[in-house]
Amino acid sequence: MNRPPTWMHIKIQGEHRGFGLWLPLFLLLPLALVVLIILSPLILIGVIILWPSGRGKRALFVLRAAYQVFCSLRGLKIDIQGRHQSVYISVV
């Protein structure tokens, strides 16, 4: 699995004004971990309730898959320049 991305660069330029943002994704991971730990009892209850229907296992896989998708974002680059607007997103 890839290493999780560290920064996300977002730049949106309008006709008159725009903004640029460097998002520190590496700070999001500890934050997400804390949220996960806080919510873990609720997640556990949800998984136990959903287990007989077979969706509990799937819910656990979703968490893993979401992390995999997050890690795969490294290297993504979107650069769209219109006549009056431009959007630039880069994940490094």
Binding site: V69, L73, I80, R83
Partner: peptide
């Protein structure tokens, strides 16, 4: 300046992870 330009680069690992999501 009056033209549209698009430049998108999608990592293959993201495509792979996306396809794997279909199993969910």
């Amino acid at each position: 300046q009056n033209v549209d330009r698009v430049n998108v680069r999608v990592p293959m690992s993201l495509i792979r992870a996306g396809i794997k999501l279909t199993s969910l």
